[in-house]
Simulated scan of single mutants.
Amino acid sequence: MGDTVSDRESLRLDWARTQLRQPALALRRASVDAGFRSYWRTEGGDGSHIVMDSPPGLEDVRPWLRMRDLLEGGGVRVPQVLARDVEAGLLLLEDLGGPTLAQVIDAGNADDWFDRAIAQLLKLQAIAVPADVGAFGEALLQRDAGLFEEWFLRRHLGLELDCAQAESLQLVQRRLMDNALAQPQVLVHRDFMPRNLMPVLPEPAVLDFQDCVRGPIAYDPISLFKDAFLDWPLARVDGWLRRYRARAADAGLPVPAWEIFQRDADWMGVQRHLKILGIFARLHHRDGKPKYLADAPRFIAYLDEVLPRHRELQPLAGLLQTVIKPALRAKDAA
């Protein structure tokens, strides 16, 4: 394994030196995905660039390139590709800087940055979805639902739900899925959040877009304002959602009236929060990446503030109070 890593490092460095014609160039880790893709910043040369490394057999670079081109064609700000070797899984990109929007946004500048992010999102959602792009449909929703039960409840908390509890969870999951499938469908990023936006002007650049699908119009707005790593007061979130909905309607996007859209966004958020709890538990227990689960309380808090607004989701609220929270407390105390 060591030789393989070393070979990859040499290949990556030699390729970057060749592309930039700078034989003394060095590479320093810039960031790493939760997957196998990694990013490296050039040092010791003229200007700064990013090498994206997607090892063949582990992370195919072609879906990323294809979606990048589609988004750019729709006016979305995406990283510029300066050189590519698709077979080797190596791309040379412009350097958009160090911190992501998640690292620079705060209570004082959030309104401005979210206005700029909404502008990018509206462009993304206006792009006609190619016929061969996957759908955020029944199969994907079922998989997402299974992540929460299998990895967060069963593996992380050690819970085995009894028949009544399992039926309560399945009832709510079914309602969430039916709502998602009934929403107007647009191109969906699926992780449109400050961590995947670079704070360049006039509008932030969009990253990590390779998994775009056709899906519910409320998915990306709720992902932006109810982030996996940042949280905001519910009143501000509702205000930003209103702002997004008004601008989406003005742009001719198929967004419903506010009361319906708020419900759709709330329910989409609940579906997403449950999925992410499952993914974070899987990253911890299967992949040896424990840091993500530290954010689990944020998602429990999201559920606490939204579930009371919706009578149809009360079976999940009851499960949260009587089963899930006690199990979390017991695990924290252990």
Rank of each mutant, 00 (worst) to 15 (best):
L159H: 08
L122A: 13
A139W: 00
D106S: 08
R155K: 13
R68L: 15
R62V: 12
F136W: 08
Q103R: 10
A164H: 06
H156I: 06
A102R: 11
M67L: 07
Q80F: 01
A135P: 10
Q165H: 07
L91I: 13
G158A: 05
P79S: 07
Q183D: 08
L181H: 03
L122D: 13
L65D: 05
A126H: 10
A131D: 13
L124I: 00
R174F: 08
Q120R: 06
A164N: 06
L90V: 08
V76R: 00
I105Y: 06
G146M: 01
P130M: 12
L101G: 01
R68Y: 15
K123C: 12
L159A: 10
Q173F: 09
L71P: 03
L70P: 05
E72A: 15
G137R: 03
Q120W: 09
Q183F: 11
A182Y: 14
E138L: 12
A126S: 12
L101Y: 07
F148I: 02
I105A: 11
D111T: 13
D106Y: 00
L124T: 04
A164K: 06
A180E: 09
R68W: 14
V133I: 15
A135T: 15
L58K: 15
V78T: 05
L82I: 11
L181Y: 02
A145F: 04
D111N: 11
V172P: 02
V61P: 03
Q173T: 11
A128F: 00
A135S: 11
L181E: 08
R154H: 12
A83H: 03
I127S: 09
V104N: 08
D85A: 04
D106T: 03
D144S: 05
G75M: 01
H156S: 05
G73W: 06
L90T: 07
G146V: 02
L121M: 15
A88F: 06
I127C: 09
L157C: 07
W64E: 12
E138R: 11
D112L: 13
T100C: 14
R155L: 12
V78W: 02
V86Y: 05
A107T: 07
G74M: 04
W113A: 01
E150L: 07
E59G: 07
L140M: 10
P79H: 03
L159N: 11
L101K: 08
V129S: 00
E59Q: 09
Q120M: 12
A126Y: 07
A139G: 00
G75A: 01
A145H: 00
L58S: 14
P63N: 06
Q142A: 15
D132E: 15
L147A: 11
G75V: 06
